[in-house]
Structures are given as C-alpha cells and as structure tokens.
C-alpha cells in the first residue's frame, strides 16, 4: 500500500512537472473589505444582522451576571434540564456547575466522563444543549469561530439540539482573516477550527427548509458587553 502511494506520487508529480506551464502573473488589485471601516458598534450590529439572516438568535447582555440570568431564562423557556459545557477561556470563568445547580440545569463537562464512548453517548443523547465560548465572532457573515482543543471538544457545539455560544464583545472582528491569522500564527495549528454561521440547515426535501438536520436546531449567541 505504501509502495503504491510512493510510486503514484512520483508518477503524478513527474507528469505534472513535465507539462509546459505558463508563468504566474501578478494578482489583480483587490480593494479591502468594507468591514474594515466599521467601528466596534457597527461591527457588533453587522454581526447580529448577519447571524439572524442565517437563522441564528442573538442576545446582548451587560455582564456575566446578566449572562447567567439570561441563560437561566432561556433554559427555562426551552425546557432544558441537562447541558454539556466546554471549558474554554470564556466558559470556564462562568462556573457553570454552580450556576446550573441554582438554575435547575445539570451541567456536564467532558472531563466528567472516564472515556470517549461515555462522553459520546452523553453528548449525543443525554444533554439537550451545548454551551461554549467562541474564539472570535466575525462580523462580515455573522460567523462564530471555535478553535477545537482539549478545552473545546468538537461535539459540544454540534451534537445537542441547542448550541449556546457566549461571545465577549471584544472578540468580534471584521473578517475571517483577522481571526484566522491569529489562530494560525502560532507554531502549531489546532486540529480543527469550526466556522459556525447559524443552525444546522437543509432544504433537501422539496426545497422545504428544515433546521436541525444533523447539528443544532437552534444557535443562541449571547454577546457580553463587559467582560
């Protein structure tokens, strides 16, 4: 199998290199994206507009106390009694286990599970919501950027029917480039980065829109003004 790959590699690259090729000219001029001209308030407004246009829900709260109250309110409305939380920089500071005890929401962390299978069962079947922070929120398209690592497991923002994302306001950036240049400037890259814009969607049957096809049916973003 290895040999087959090595032989094919040589064969393919040799053939590609043997072809006559044209030199690559300079790239045409591309004016900068409009979003760079926005101030913080305009960026936040655009982020929220774009997120809503893709079926997301946005709330804005003053501080982390207000955030806790808002989360409790939404969990009551949605009948959420069990949720899994990430332990990223944002969420970790919220002490969600204590919050959950008061709000009547049982909070699980990935570290509560001895091994992967138990975690997978729980995140697929036992919790109704996933709670994460976000590394960035991109104004241009209302997109959350999540860097996955041991504190930000992939399935928490994906498998449950509701995804709550907590966004400190200063994490809103104009474009993808700003976010990804920071993420990829470190020496080694994260195993996965997800750009999330709205809930899971399909229109594959008769063009009828349906949310929550495989991922969350609802994406609720709470922007925290003072962090």
């Amino acid at each position: 199998m290895k040999d087959s790959s090595i032989n094919s590699r040589e064969e393919i690259l040799t053939r590609l290199k043997a072809a006559a090729r044209a030199p690559v000219g300079p790239r045409p001029v591309l004016p900068p994206a409009r979003e760079y001209a926005l101030d913080a308030a305009q960026m936040q407004k655009l982020f929220v507009e774009q997120l809503k246009a893709q079926g997301g829900v946005a709330h804005s709260v003053s501080d982390s106390a207000a955030l806790r109250a808002k989360l409790a309110e939404i969990c009551r409305q949605e009948g959420i009694s069990r949720a899994m939380a990430a332990t990223d920089e944002v969420v970790e500071t919220l002490d969600l286990k204590a919050w959950g005890a008061a709000a009547g929401v049982e909070i699980f962390l990935a570290s509560d599970f001895p091994e992967r299978n138990a975690y997978t069962q729980a995140v697929f079947d036992q919790v109704q919501a996933g709670i994460t922070g976000a590394d960035f929120a991109v104004a241009e398209s209302g997109t959350l950027v999540l860097v996955h690592n041991s504190r930000q497991p992939r399935l928490i923002s994906l498998a449950p029917l509701i995804h709550f994302a907590v966004v400190p306001v200063q994490r809103i950036v104009p474009t993808y480039e700003v976010a990804l240049e920071k993420i990829f400037s470190a020496g080694s890259y994260p195993s996965q980065v997800s750009l999330i814009t709205g809930p899971s969607m399909t229109a594959d049957i008769q063009a009828t829109p349906f949310r929550g096809m495989h991922g969350p049916q609802k994406l609720v973003v709470v922007i925290v003004e003072t962090w």
Partner: peptide, 21 residues
Amino acid sequence: QKAGAYLSFDSGPRRPGEIDG
C-alpha cells in the same frame, strides 16, 4: 449564502488530551 452554516478547517488528527476527533 455568505457562509455555509459550517466551514471546518482540519490540520491533522486530534491532539493528545482531546476527547473527540
């Protein structure tokens, strides 16, 4: 759409300590 609901960027397999991936 300006962006599909999910754009995922994978650079290698999961790293040590990651529970999924």
